[in-house]
């Protein structure tokens, strides 16, 4: 199975995507989707991406819910900042935080989460010093933001540890 589908999750995603694009569940579509997943899986194998293993699916699901709740809250907060921007100028600023994540994929996921949250934007990660520079729109309380990043980091570490 591993020789045919080196990245089962990727192949499955591609199959689902193909079926959604075609809007059909005909055997032909499923066959082409499987072939597509297989071929692109081999291509990905040639690219040698950093491999990491997902542990604790339940913890990952809880983390996803947590992130969605944070994004909704942050959406509302940033919307109110924009609407009040002419009266109360936003107190924005740069922050740095030390990270302790080894896994490349975990770092990439953290970058996506932080940028997808409207209040925070990922700017630069220094690999040697292991510090992350990010920008915050509502800099009322620096410690709250640092604590949020630390919370994400702890969760990702738990999910991605080897």
């Amino acid at each position: 199975m591993r020789t045919w589908f080196p990245y089962p999750l990727l192949s499955l995603t591609l199959l689902v995507m193909w079926l959604l694009l075609n809007q059909s569940l005909a055997p032909g579509s499923i066959l082409i989707g499987l072939v597509l997943g297989m071929v692109l899986g081999w291509v990905t194998l040639k690219l040698h991406p950093a491999r990491s293993h997902l542990h604790r699916i339940g913890r990952a699901a809880r983390f996803a819910l947590e992130v969605i709740a944070d994004i909704i809250r942050s959406n509302i907060a940033v919307a109110s900042i924009i609407l009040r921007a002419d009266r109360v100028p936003a107190i924005a600023g740069f922050l740095t935080v030390d990270l302790d994540l080894e896994d490349e994929n975990a770092l990439a996921l953290l970058a996506c989460i932080m940028t997808a949250t409207p209040g925070t934007a990922w700017l630069e990660y220094d690999r040697r010093r292991k510090t992350l520079l990010f920008h915050v729109l509502d800099l009322q309380n620096e410690e709250v933001w640092r604590a949020t990043i630390k919370r994400y980091e702890a969760a990702l570490k738990e999910i991605f540890h080897d």
Binding site: V78, I82, L83, A85, D86, F94, T115, T117, A121, L137
Partner: peptide, 21 residues
Amino acid sequence: IGSLGLLRLSNFYERLHAPTI
């Protein structure tokens, strides 16, 4: 509101937050 943020916020790093809404 997200696109309005492009107009109302004052510098690039602040505007970077607006399109995500």
